[in-house]
């Protein structure tokens, strides 16, 4: 039997990017329209939820039409509509969820409810098909977690941050250095020119389990900078950035490597906005080189985008996971947290 082509229209509006994409067979990106609101939220030093929601409704049909035009497909060609329904900002999520439900209803298409984190992980499919069992390190402005996938469509959290997400820590540290929001990529840039001279703490490295913590590192950084200001000491910006980044990356790499010892994965997937970080990519690649095949989401699909939602939607389509028209946003949607194996 010849299998039907999957052609998914995908929506993503969980935070401050409005995105609509068209994905063929889970791996081929025919269109990925992204409207970013970064410039707007720079005014406030971070994302303001109501402002984000207002921008989403301004952009949603523009992105929809542009995506279909770029992909050169019509509604009649589509096999399903996928949408991020959580986690994220509720008001933002609702614009995408409502738009996706409307299109699905208007054209009698199945509706695929996608977890945003599964979307980030499935961006790996744009490099190569995911092989199971797989492990994913998801790092972004809102998330820092190790996700174990024993088989397809099974996601289990084995470790996550107990306080700040790593991307959030980058932004806060960057703000302390006087960098504009979002500061993460700039901190990464500066770090590449400096050295790890400040010996910031590596949190949780000695503890069993795979949870992360970045608030201690953040406080230590901010205290150091404030102390220098008080005594009029001039600190090297590049060394500060390099020292912070070394500490953050040490913790991420260390926990991931240890998790892989206990969970024998065929692939390690690095995903999320912070997956674009140069040092993290390099250090993780060399740390796991002899252990597992590392698949890193392409840089342009690391930030929030609907292409990855379409890729994860394709997996749901295969498994016949469907949502009804009463699908609601779930701002605190989470994968199941599993009990760790006993040593």
């Amino acid at each position: 039997m010849k299998s039907k082509t999957s052609l998914i229209l995908a929506f993503e509006t969980s935070c401050d990017e409005t995105s609509v994409a068209v994905i063929r067979d889970g791996r081929k990106v025919l269109a990925n329209e992204v409207a970013t609101q970064i410039k707007s939220h720079q005014r406030f030093g971070g994302v303001v939820p109501e402002v984000a929601s207002r921008h989403h409704i301004e952009q949603i049909t523009i992105c929809l039409e542009q995506a279909l035009q770029t992909a050169q497909v019509d509604y009649a060609d589509l096999s399903a509509v996928a949408v991020t329904y959580g986690p994220g900002l509720v008001g933002s999520l609702l614009v995408g969820v409502t738009a996706a439900k409307t299109v699905a209803w208007a054209h009698h298409l199945p509706l695929l409810p996608v977890n945003h984190i599964a979307g980030h992980i499935y961006a790996a499919q744009f490099v190569q098909p995911i092989k199971f069992p797989a492990m994913a390190l998801v790092v972004s402005g809102g998330h820092t977690e190790l996700v174990w996938m024993p088989t397809e469509n099974q996601f289990e959290i084995i470790g996550e941050t107990r306080d700040d997400a790593v991307g959030e820590t980058y932004d806060k540290v960057g703000r302390t250095m006087g960098l504009a929001y979002p500061a993460g990529p700039q901190v990464d840039q500066l770090a590449q020119q400096g050295h790890d001279t400040f010996a910031f703490p590596r949190a949780m490295q000695d503890e069993a389990g795979y949870d992360f913590s970045f608030s201690g590192l953040k406080s230590s950084f901010i205290n150091r900078v404030h102390h220098a200001e008080q005594v009029h000491e001039q600190l090297s910006q590049v060394d500060l950035a390099a020292s912070f980044q070394a500490a953050a990356v040490d913790v991420l790499v260390d926990k991931t490597v240890r998790a892989l010892h206990e969970y024998p994965a065929q692939q390690l997937i690095l995903a999320g906005g912070v997956a674009a970080n140069h040092e993290l990519r390099q250090r993780l690649a060399s740390a796991v080189a002899n252990q597992v095949r590392l698949v890193m989401a392409p840089a342009q699909f690391c930030g929030d985008n609907a292409a990855m939602i379409g890729a994860a939607g394709w997996m749901l389509e295969k498994h016949q996971v469907r949502a009804d028209l009463d699908l609601n946003a779930n701002p605190s949607l989470e994968f199941e947290r599993i009990q760790l194996k006993k040593h």
Binding site: I57, V90, G91, L94, V95, T98, T102, H107
Partner: peptide
């Protein structure tokens, strides 16, 4: 605000898609 966006999103997406 959130309520308004439901009908307006449905309206503008229906107008666009149909």
């Amino acid at each position: 605000y959130t309520g308004l966006r439901v009908a307006v999103t449905i309206g503008k997406v229906l107008a666009t898609t149909l």
